Simulated assay, not measured.
Amino acid sequence: MLTRFIPLTAAVGVLLALVFYSKWNPDPPRVSGMIEADEIRLGSRVGGRIAMVHVQEGQEVAAGDVLVEFEPYDLLEREKELELSLAVRQSQYQQTLAGFRDEEIAQAKAKFDQLQARLDLLVAGPRPQEIEAARGRQALAEAEKRLATQGYERLSKLAGSNATSQQEMDAAREALEAASANLVVRQQELELLLAGTREEELRGAAASVEEARQAWQLMQRGYRQEEIEQAKASRDAAEAALQAIRRQKEELRVKSPIDGRIEALDLQPGDMVAPGAPVLSMLDRNELWVRSYVPQTRVVNVGQRLRLSIDSHPDRTFEGVVTFVARQAEFTPSNVQTPEERSKQVFRIKVGIDDQDDLLRPGMIVDVWLDELGANR
C-alpha cells in the first residue's frame, strides 16, 4: 500500500510545482495577426484597347517586366509629325542663331549701291550734252513745222484755182499738224531738262536709299536676341510636345515596378480600358508586415523589436519592428483573439517582418509576442 502511495504523491508534487512555476513565470503576452503585403494597382494614363497580356494571376514577375501592352492607335503618327515639326523648329533656330549668309549681305549692299547711284543721278540732273541735244531736236521740229506750213500754204493757193486735188490738201494739212505736235513735244522735253529733277522724286529716291541702307546694316548685325530667344522657345515647345507623346508611348506598356506576384488580373486582348483605370494588382513580397491589435493595457512603441512565431514553422522565430501605432483606440475586430477581455479597446499596429529566407507569405496567421525582443536574448 505504501509503495502505491509514493508514486502518487510524487506525481501530485510535480503537478503542484508546474502550477506554481506557471504562476510565477507566465508566458509573455501575445496577440495574433495576419501577414499582409503592400498591394500595387497598376494601370495606364492613356488607356485604350488591350493588345497583349503577358502574365497570369499568381505569376511571379521581376521589376521591369512588361505585363500588359496597349494598341498605339494614332500615337505613332503623331510622334512622326512632331519629330518633323521639331526638325523644322530646330532648323529655324539654327538659322536665326547663325545670322545671314555672306551672299545675302552682299546682295543687300548691291541694292543699296544701286539706289544710291540713282539718287546721285537725280541730284546731278541732266548733262549739258542732253540739254543741247534737246535744243537741237526742238530746232529740227521748228524747221519741219515751217516746211510743212509753207507746203500747206502753197497748196491752199493752188486749191483756189483747182490746180491741186483734195487728197494733196489733206496730206499737207496732216503733215502740218504732225510737225506742230512734234514741235510741242520737243519744247516740253527741253523745258523738263532745264527744270531739273522734281523735289518729290528726290525725296522718294532718298527714302529708298535709306531703306536699303538700313536693310543692309540689319543683315550685317544679324537677328536680334529677342528673335533668337523666340526661335529657341519655339524649338523647345516642339521638343516638349514630342517628349509628351513619347511619354504616352511609354504608357502603352505597363511594366512591373518591383519584384512581386500578380494578385488580380481580368483582362483579355481587345478589352477597352479607361485612362488611369487599374488593369491589374500585384503584391510586393519584399515588404511584408503584420496587421495586429494590441490591448490598451500594453504599451507598444514605434521602432520596438518584437518576436514573431508562425504555426507552419514552429521551430523558427522571426523578428519584426513596429512601424505604426494607431493614435486612436478602436473596438477589437471579431477575427482577432487576445488574452484580455474582448470588450476592451485596442490599438492597431503594423509590424514590419525581416524575412531574409523568404519563408513567409501574405495571408499567414502570426503570433506577435509583446515582450521586448532584447529581454529574451
Results as ranks from 00 to 15, higher is better:
L176F: 09
E177V: 11
E177M: 12
N182I: 00
V184P: 00
V185A: 12
V185S: 11
R186T: 13
Q187Y: 02
Q187P: 00
Q188C: 04
E189T: 08
L190N: 04
L192H: 12
L193S: 03
A195E: 11
G196H: 03
T197N: 08
T197A: 14
E200W: 06
A205W: 03
A206R: 12
A207C: 07
A207V: 10
E211M: 12
A212W: 03
A212P: 05
Q214A: 14
Q214W: 11
Q217A: 11
Q217Y: 09
L218D: 15
I228Y: 03
E229C: 08
E229H: 10
A233N: 11
S234Y: 02
S234F: 05
S234C: 06
R235A: 04
D236R: 10
D236E: 15
A238Y: 00
A238L: 03
E239M: 09
A240M: 07
R247H: 13
Q248G: 09
K249R: 15
K249E: 15
K249M: 15
E250M: 11
E250F: 03
K255I: 15
P257H: 09
D259P: 01
I262S: 07
A264N: 14
L267V: 04
Q268R: 15
P269E: 09
V273P: 01
V273L: 06
A274E: 12
P275C: 05
G276I: 08
A277H: 10
A277W: 01
V279C: 03
L280T: 01
L283G: 01
D284H: 03
N286A: 09
E287L: 07
E287I: 04
